[in-house]
């Protein structure tokens, strides 16, 4: 325990020292590296093998849900979208994306909730429910291996700017921004974790700590409480904008969902 505490103090000192001279510029990490590279070999092996990756259970459930007729009109996702491996290929790589009709920035979860609620006339699945995670993982999985490619221009620009500002904003009692850990210190150890560059291309991902699949926002809430800042509620506009900035930063990486993380 003493050893742990000393490590913690050391890590904090290291972070604060590193804050000097961090530019407030929208920089991309160079070279860009997936969070997978910072995982233990066993964890990487688990992600790489579909027969061993527990995240594939959520994908399989999502595949079943895709064809299930629900709601007043007894429509399934397939009734409108047909085969997911054709119509959803590459979609997740472009999210978050501005919904032209409402002008809102939607991540994949919000988009699926919208289809469930408005187009299927069915109950909207809650954030982090198995149903929403399974559908999201299934749709995201159709883009696995495809490069992350979001639009940050036009209607998306104000959201991108907000996300970027949030990324560099110091928050919480520890007064740290995302950039202090994920730009200035990636590759270093923080307690039991090796800090990655903080990309979102893994999600929805299976985390050993969660013993389940969870969303990118669940991960972001952890990063907030870690610096003793109040997390936003799931689906908050602040997080969706941050997701857009993260996707822009992840240029050069491919969608890995469902990845496996510690």
């Amino acid at each position: 325990m003493l050893y742990r505490q000393r490590l913690a103090w050391g890590a904090l000192a290291l972070l604060l020292a590193a804050t000097v001279g961090v530019a407030q510029e929208p920089i991309r990490p160079d070279p860009v590296r997936s969070g997978r590279d910072f995982q233990a070999p066993e964890t990487r092996a688990m992600q790489d093998d579909d027969g061993a990756n527990p995240g594939m259970l959520w994908v399989a459930r999502g595949r079943a849900l895709w064809d299930e007729a629900v709601g007043a009109a007894r429509r399934s996702c397939a009734s409108c979208h047909g085969r997911a491996d054709e119509t959803m290929r590459g979609v997740a790589a472009q999210y978050p994306r501005v919904d032209p009709s409402s002008g809102r920035l939607l991540n994949l979860e919000l988009r699926i909730q919208q289809c469930r609620g408005e187009r299927q006339d069915a109950p909207v699945p809650r954030f982090e429910s198995d149903e929403l995670l399974a559908l999201t993982a299934y749709v995201a999985h159709q883009s696995r291996g495809m490069p992350v490619a979001v639009s940050v221009d036009g209607a998306a620009r104000p959201f991108f700017d907000a996300g970027r500002a949030a990324y560099f904003q110091r928050i919480g009692q520890l007064n740290l921004a995302c950039t202090h850990c994920h730009d200035a210190n990636w590759g270093r150890m923080l307690r039991g974790d090796r800090l990655s560059q903080g990309h979102g291309n893994a999600y929805p991902a299976y985390r050993l700590d969660w013993q389940a699949v969870g969303s990118l926002q669940r991960r972001l809430r952890f990063c907030n409480t870690g610096v003793r800042a109040e997390p936003h509620p799931f689906g908050a506009a602040e997080y969706v904008a941050l997701e857009l900035y993260l996707a822009w930063r992840a240029k050069g990486l491919t969608v890995e969902s469902p990845a496996v993380r510690r």
Binding site: L12, G214, T225, G226, R228
Partner: peptide
């Protein structure tokens, strides 16, 4: 949604752990 309840519980613990260790990261178990 046990996972989430657990998370908020972790949040509280993290505060305690943080007070002891100077850093709320990650949680003491």
């Amino acid at each position: 949604m046990r996972g989430l309840d657990q998370q908020s519980l972790l949040g509280r613990r993290a505060l305690l752990a943080g007070a002891a260790a100077g850093l709320a990261w990650p949680v003491l178990r």
